[in-house]
């Protein structure tokens, strides 16, 4: 299935390790970060969002993708979210404080289109008589 071709080419970059980041700075990570889509086939995959370093009890995650517009945690024990996404466009995620709507951190999932092979102009009529 062509979708699987897109999936197979998804895992281009490793997830950033939160341990290597400053502990006091809230971070939002998306994994994978990039999907390479074959022409006319969107990326279909499970996106994992993880966040650390926030002192807020509640956070919400927003995106500019219609399939996932807003999600809020129920408790501060939750630090990850998995989304099943089908898209051929980049998705911008933002983690916000629901009480102030202030952006705490953000992350971007990128979709790269595999370029179409270059085509040539045909010089002859395929059905010309004689």
């Amino acid at each position: 299935m062509r979708v699987h071709l897109a999936l197979a080419s998804v895992l281009l970059s490793p997830m950033l390790h939160a341990d290597s980041l400053p502990a006091d700075k809230p971070t939002l990570e998306v994994w994978p970060q990039i999907c390479v889509a074959v022409p006319e086939t969107p990326c279909k995959l499970d996106l994992q969002l993880k966040w650390r370093g926030t002192s807020h009890n509640r956070i919400c995650i927003l995106s500019d993708n219609a399939q996932f517009t807003r999600w809020c945690n129920d408790s501060n024990a939750v630090h990850s979210l998995t989304l099943n996404i089908t898209t051929d466009k980049d998705i911008q995620f933002e983690m916000v404080d629901p009480e102030t709507n202030r952006i705490i951190a953000d992350a971007k999932f990128r979709v790269t289109q595999l370029s179409e092979p270059q085509k040539r102009r045909r010089y002859r009529n395929p059905w010309s008589l004689f």
Binding site: P117, Q118, K119, R120, R121, R122, Y123, R124, N125, P126, W127
Partner: peptide
Amino acid sequence: VSSLGEPMSPSQWQFA
């Protein structure tokens, strides 16, 4: 079939 002037994918045979 690609008509005259229309794109042809390179290095692919087109039979009709």
